[in-house]
């Protein structure tokens, strides 16, 4: 059935996922709360499911889980919290159905109020479990902030989506988020303790060594180890966040995505992709009240059209990424799960 949805795929092959490479992982983050991360997650997941893909959406925001509500699932008993608390070690057993065919969910409900975030070793286990999920795409909804667990989920995906709204607070937090992800990724790419220590120092924006920018950091790393400098460059190159502007009302708001892309290029040296925007649309509010993704409840609304378009681009990107990759890498884009990091 699914093959019919994609005429470009060769018969008998799944275009995006193979047994060895696991599902296409997309993480949706953005730093600030309320910018539409859950909205994006639910709708991209639903749009992909509508396109005939097998999708699992997972709510990692254990302190403020509501992905299940947006998808129209009454608070499920099984939740990611069971995995975090080690009541369940097989993530696949925590998947529940949603009213949308092809779309299933791991909810973030019933978290432990005292210790909602998994410890780092549990996170590594979780990240490798994500790759075993029986799906073409796994959408990971992130919580707000820049907690290390949030960054880990963001970096593990082949696609990290950065959601922002055209407001100073959101843009500022999006940059903090990006900075945190950027340095965490760099730190992982460094092999020597001294280079890692330098990255760690650079993360402290008031550091005494005068490292203020990624460029300063690169210079410092070069002086201690030139080969680490090359790893640095490779890590920078491989980091391609996808920007989405939510709640856009004017052409200027739409331009914000390009502007943020420019800052990414000129400050971090990274190539971000502006994959699209979602306009401010009353249909979105109505859809949330109906507890359904807007692409399902109001498929002809502007917001639904934009969201579907973003989903299609991400689907193509996932396909392209796999097509151009020389060999499947069972441990993610940068061998992440092998290396626990506090």
């Amino acid at each position: 059935m699914r093959h019919e949805a994609d005429p470009r795929s060769r018969p008998g092959t799944r275009p995006d996922a193979t047994a060895s490479s696991g599902p296409h992982l997309l993480a949706v983050g953005g730093g600030k709360g309320g910018v539409g991360k859950t909205l994006l997650t639910a709708n991209i997941a639903a749009a992909l499911a509508q396109a005939g893909r097998r999708v699992v959406a997972i709510d990692t925001d254990l302190e403020g889980a509501n992905l299940h509500t947006v998808l129209g699932v009454p608070a499920p008993r099984a939740s990611l919290a069971d995995f975090v608390a080690k009541r369940e070690s097989d993530l696949r057993k925590l998947v529940v159905d949603t009213p949308i065919p092809g779309l299933r969910l791991i909810a973030g409900t019933q978290g432990h109020l005292g210790a909602p975030q998994p410890r780092s070793f549990r996170r590594v286990a979780l990240l490798s479990e994500l790759r075993k999920l029986p799906a073409d795409h796994v959408l990971v909804d992130l919580g707000a902030g820049t907690h290390p667990s949030v960054m880990d989920y963001f970096l593990v995906g082949q696609d990290g989506i950065l959601v922002l709204t055209p407001e100073p607070t959101s843009v500022e937090n999006a940059y903090s988020f990006l900075r945190a992800a950027f340095y965490r990724r760099l730190r992982l790419a460094m092999t020597s303790e001294s280079a890692r220590a330098l990255v760690h120092q650079a993360m402290d924006q008031g550091n005494q060594r005068g490292i203020r920018t990624p460029l300063d950091l690169l210079r410092e790393i070069r002086t201690i180890a030139p080969e680490e400098g090359e790893r640095f460059a490779a890590a920078v190159q491989g980091f391609r966040p996808r920007i989405v502007v939510n709640a856009a009302r004017t052409a200027e708001d739409v331009r914000l995505g390009f502007a943020v892309k420019s800052v990414c290029k000129k400050y971090f040296g990274i190539e971000a992709d502006y994959v699209g925007y979602v306009n401010h649309d009353e249909a979105v509010t109505q859809a949330i009240r109906q507890r359904r993704p807007v692409v399902v409840s109001h498929p002809h609304s502007d917001a639904a059209v934009y969201l579907t378009r973003i989903a299609r681009k991400l689907m193509d990107a996932g396909r392209r990424a796999r097509g151009s990759r020389p060999a499947p890498r069972p441990h993610g884009a940068h061998g992440y799960a092998r290396r626990p990091l506090a």
């Binding site: 100073p168 843009v171 914000l256 502007a259």
Partner: peptide
């Protein structure tokens, strides 16, 4: 045109970074 707007004083996209 896009870049000049992006890098203008008080630009939403740049003021907090530069």
């Amino acid at each position: 045109r896009l870049l000049i707007a992006t890098w203008a004083d008080d630009s939403l996209a740049t003021y907090s970074m530069f």
